[in-house]
Every structure is written in C-alpha cells, then in structure tokens.
Design a protein around this nucleic acid. Structure first.
Lengths: 145, 145
DNA sequence: CTCGCCCATTCACATCAGTTGGTGAACTCG
DNA sequence: CGAGTTCACCAACTGATGTGAATGGGCGAG
C-alpha cells in the first residue's frame, strides 16, 4: 500500500544508467549523443531536451516506443524500467556490462577467461601500466552505492 | 517448453490476454469491466474506448503507466508487452557476463576501458599469446547469433 | 580578454495519446 | 411488440507528451 517511493523512480534509474554505461573514453554520454545514436540505430526520434526532462524527473510516463529505444540504447531489457527487483539484479551486473559495450574490451575479457591466476595478474598489471602511460585517471571502481 | 503464443504486435498480445484471462463465468471481460477494475484498484484512469482502440490495433504506443496498469490487471509482467526476441537476447548477454562476476577478468575489463585502440590491440594479442602458451582452445567468438 | 564551441537548461509550441459523448446493433423482460 | 440495458464502435475534442529554437554558462584556442 505505502508505495516505496524513493527507490524506483524512472529518473533514478535513467540517472544510474547514464552514470554506468559510458562511451569508451571516460565521460558520460551527452543528451545529444544519446538522441542521435538512438535515431541512427533505427529507433524513433527522441529529442535531447526530452531526455533531459526524463532524467531530471520533470517527465515520467514515456510511451512504449521511447522506453524500447532507451532500453535498447543502454543495453538493458525494457523490464528494467518497470520491475525494481529486475532492475536491481541487472544493476549488479551493469558496471561489468558497461565495460563490455566496448567491442575491443569485450574481446579481451572473453579471451582472458580461463587463464591461470598468475597470467591474469600479469595482464592486469600490464593494463594498469599502459593506463598510467596514457595518462588515464583511476577507473571508476564498482564500489559506488 | 515455453509456450509460443501471442507473438508480435501489442494488439495481438492484448487480444490473447482477453481470450485467456476471464471472469469466473465463462465470457470475456468487457472493456468497461476492465477499465472499471483498473480504476478501483488504484490504477490510473483508463477509458473503455481506449482499451478497445488498443485491442483493435488503432492505437499502439501507450504510456508507461497504462502498460503497468494493463500488466497488473491481467497478471503478467510488463515485459510481456515488449518484443520478446530482443529482450531474451539482452538477458542472455547479461547472464553470460555475470559468469565473470568474481573473476579477476572483471578487473581487467574495467581497467582496460578507455585505453587507446592501439594499446587494446596489443593487450589483446598478449592475451592470445598467453592463452596459446597455456594450451587453451580458441574461445567462442562473441559474434554468434 | 574574446571568440567560438559544446553542452545543459529554458520556454513556447505542435503532435498525438487518451477522454468525453454519442450512435446503433443485439439482447432482455414488461 | 416497444421501452430499457448493455455492449462494441465511432468521431470530435482536450491536454499531457514530446519537440525546436533560443539562452547562458564553461572551457579551450588564438
């Protein structure tokens, strides 16, 4: 009866998605980028302004087609926006998933599976070293929340 | 075996639901009955006419709240109204990736994110080489489906 | 500092989701 | 037979959803 309000608003979920699934180079997607990407990938038109409104919570209640488009872009099933339990389950894996949105990164991960602990450690060190060389910041730890 | 029914359009799915979930005495629910029931159970207002339009396919693309209400009434998850194939594909991807959850592979993937294409390629090659050294088979390409 | 660019935010407006109010066909019960 | 109900169906309208065009702050380059 007393609806659990704070937990599962649409804007909260969208906000989380923006924070977690990012382009290959660090920063969050821009509203324009998302709108553009959805449009070019055969989705319906969606304006950057509207995305902003949804994220800010000024508008909830989008249509089926827009929900489909958003889910498609962020790589989550549409159920993510409805079912809180489902959303939580997916959230647990999202930080990992986001890394895999990048094709090259995904390939590395898939192929690293099954290697010995020692080899993995060596590779991990190498990645860190390269990261340092390229002047990248500390990666977003998955310990947010 | 998962029942293969009610694929495709929203109207098809709704139609199926009307046919399957019925009141105690045989006949299908009336549009008024459904509208009334949804309203009394705390749902949003929804007109009988609109239900008819949706079922007939004159209107697809309802809003989030109306989808929730319909799903609630017929006792199905809201995901029921969305495209099945796509949802299943994404779900499969998510569960596949969850296999990596506790592996050090995760750390590598997370930290490899954002590296230059050249560096990623170098790392990928290295992983392949190590893989070879440890006598592991070619991994399944992720380009299946 | 100033120009130019990118981006979030704002606001006035158009479009389409959803409603209100109606028509007639079919089906009772006097 | 009518008079009264109930239902699918239709059409004109209302307002929330969704858009486009301006505003203004931040930031790098010249």
């Amino acid at each position: 009866m007393p609806e659990e309000i704070a937990a599962g608003t649409l804007s909260t979920k969208l906000n989380h998605l923006f924070g977690v699934v990012r382009p290959a180079d660090g920063d969050e997607y821009t509203f324009d980028e998302v709108a553009e990407s959805i449009r070019t990938q055969g989705g319906p038109t969606i304006s950057a302004t509207y995305l902003w409104q949804l994220r800010k919570g000024l508008r909830d209640n989008p249509t089926k087609r827009h929900l489909e488009a958003l889910a498609g872009f962020f790589g989550v099933p549409p159920a993510y926006f409805f079912d809180d339990a489902e959303a939580e389950r997916i959230d647990a894996e999202l930080t990992l998933l986001s890394a895999f949105r990048d094709a090259p990164v995904r390939q590395i991960a898939l192929r690293a599976r099954g290697l010995s602990a020692k080899s993995l450690e060596a590779i991990s060190d190498m990645v860190d070293r390269v990261r340092e060389l390229e002047g990248l910041p500390e990666p977003a730890s998955d310990a947010e929340r």
